[in-house]
């Protein structure tokens, strides 16, 4: 597993990457225990992998999720109330019985504070041992990432950076050179959350990255687009526009929040999204 496993997950050219908030018990908190919330997440992950997920992003909740919109903020609050902690998160990852790479998405402070001493080393070491293959830290730009890069390299964990619509060439260069695993392409400005249409910004951003890659032969990373994708048709559009994969979070978190037939509904939407990504790939390569 580790960095190579993540790269391998993009082999079919149309990766489907679901996101869930770990330990989110959904709408009804009254009967949930930390154990039941963790077991529910494990079931949801299995359902998404059955539906064709190639990588799974699992959110480790942080009390100040500044990059997240209302849907994932609410999931974060539910998960924290249900008792999710960094040690339980790693237990949950360790208990997963799936053969796709797991990427942990969280903010800098929880991983900085993990363990007996300050610094990111203890978290990365424990995460790698538990089966985490990559990290996404939305509040960590390349300016501050050197310590985490070192720890990730040491433990064969991918460090996945985000490229935004506002990211210009000089910053893109640093991100492409320092990131591993894949590049998280932010589809539009704003916070995470489902939206009705995939913006023109996405196409422009993908084109700019493609132009950059053409000029720098060594700087290739798979490109996964996230922020606002919620349907198979949107997945097809994004992959058709040049993405190697789609990341879908809020639309899936909504299903967990509603709490009705969660496993079946996740599987159904998961199949639609994977099929959409494939259709987009076929469209592009025909």
């Amino acid at each position: 597993m580790g960095v190579d496993a993540i790269r391998a997950a993009f082999e079919d050219g149309a990766a489907f990457i679901p996101y869930l908030a770990a330990g989110d018990p959904g709408g009804d908190l009254s009967n949930s225990t930390p154990e039941s919330a963790m077991a529910a997440t494990a079931d949801y992950v299995s359902a998404l992998v059955d539906a064709g997920a190639d990588v799974v992003e699992l959110g480790l909740p942080f009390s100040e999720p500044i990059a997240d919109g209302p849907t994932i903020q609410s999931a974060t609050v539910r998960a924290l109330q249900a008792g999710m902690t960094p040690p339980r998160y790693l237990e949950l990852v360790e208990s997963l019985d799936v053969d796709v790479p797991i990427v942990a998405m969280t903010y800098y402070n929880p991983i900085y504070r993990y363990g007996e001493r300050d610094g990111v080393g203890p978290f990365v070491e424990a995460a790698a041992a538990a089966g985490v293959d990559g990290l996404i830290i939305p509040d960590l730009p390349v300016e501050e990432s050197a310590p985490l890069e070192r720890a990730c390299r040491e433990h064969d964990v991918a460090l996945i950076f985000i490229a935004a619509p506002t990211t210009r060439e000089d910053r893109l260069r640093a991100i492409m050179q320092r990131g591993t695993g894949y590049l998280y392409v932010q589809a539009r400005l704003g916070t995470t959350g489902a939206s009705r249409s995939v913006s023109d910004q996405t196409k422009h951003t993908l084109d700019r990255i493609a132009a950059y890659e053409a000029s720098e032969r060594h700087a290739r990373l798979p490109k996964a687009v996230g922020f606002g994708i919620s349907t198979g048709e949107q997945a097809a559009t994004v992959v058709g526009a040049g993405a190697d994969g789609v990341i879908v979070g809020s639309a899936l978190v909504d299903i967990v929040a509603e709490g009705e037939d969660v496993v079946a509904s996740l599987e159904e939407l998961g199949r639609e999204l994977k099929a959409g990504a494939r259709a987009g790939f076929d469209r592009r390569t025909q």
């Binding site: 939305p138 300016e143 619509p165 506002t166």
Partner: peptide, 22 residues
């Protein structure tokens, strides 16, 4: 390393989307 260091404190821990504005 970013600018704005006061000993061990300071820095720029913000989403990439904001960095160009910063």
């Amino acid at each position: 390393m970013s600018g704005g260091q006061y000993g061990r404190f300071g820095g720029q821990y913000v989403p990439e989307a904001l960095m160009p504005a910063i």
